[in-house]
């Protein structure tokens, strides 16, 4: 999958202070019927963004004009449930490049990393600081620096480091994916098969 190389992003952030946001909420199953990777952003958080009549729910953060940006901030255990990669596609397609939470579900985290969407794990305290900052000032800027592995609340300068697998970091910064890597390993894989 071709995605934009990731270095540093400075942006406003959209708050979603809900826990256990599962991938069925991120993109409901009935929108998984495409055979191409197109337009999933339109149905991001479909049943939270729209009411039964297809009207936007004004109080949902993504619909609230005061919030915008490339950073989505969610409560703990973000991305639980189904393995659908469509969830990561939908978030990316909508325009986000970073998801911040104190805790991510494993498969969602992998899927995000495979699609140029950076999952940033912060401490519960720092997550609360971010929510508070957006609450006080929806125009607040946040800087996510992948090279240094830091996320900063720009106004106060307060920051926190985050972990990322060095190989995945290298892939994101250079826009590489695992498939190229694996295809080049074909001979090693064939040799491995003979040992089984």
């Amino acid at each position: 999958m071709v995605y934009e190389k990731f270095t540093t992003i400075t942006s406003l952030a959209v708050p979603l202070p809900i826990e256990n946001v599962d991938t069925d909420q991120i993109i409901p199953a009935r929108f998984l019927k495409a055979v191409e990777r197109k337009g999933f952003g339109d149905n991001l958080f479909r049943d939270w963004r729209y009411d039964n009549n297809g009207q936007l729910k004004p109080d949902f953060p993504l619909n609230d004009k005061k919030y915008s940006g490339k950073i989505l901030v969610g409560g703990k255990n973000f991305g639980s449930g189904s393995s659908r990669e469509h969830a990561a596609w939908a978030i990316y397609d909508y325009g986000f490049r970073v998801v911040v939470s104190s805790f991510f579900a494993d498969i969602f985290k992998n899927n995000s990393l495979n699609n140029g969407l950076l999952p940033v794990v912060v401490s519960p305290g720092f997550l609360q600081d971010i929510f508070n900052e957006i609450d006080v000032d929806p125009e607040a800027q946040f800087e996510v620096n992948l090279e240094n592995q830091t996320i900063q609340i720009v106004s106060s300068g307060k920051d926190e480091g985050f972990e990322i697998n060095p190989y995945k970091k290298h892939c994101l910064i250079n826009g590489l994916d695992d498939i190229d890597y694996l295809v080049e390993m074909k001979e090693e894989i064939q040799a491995f098969e003979k040992t089984k």
């Binding site: 999958m1 393995s83 659908r84 990669e85 469509h86 990561a88 494993d106 498969i107 992998n110 899927n111 495979n114 699609n115 697998n165 190989y167 994916d177 695992d178 498939i179 890597y181 694996l182 295809v183 390993m185 074909k186 894989i189 098969e193």
Partner: peptide, 22 residues
């Protein structure tokens, strides 16, 4: 275990995936 579509492509292409050990 369950995987995403990028990983489905990896298995189809190479019979392997890249995973940190849980």
């Amino acid at each position: 275990f369950g995987i995403g579509t990028s990983e489905v492509e990896m298995v189809l292409a190479s019979q392997c995936i890249m995973q940190p050990k849980p």
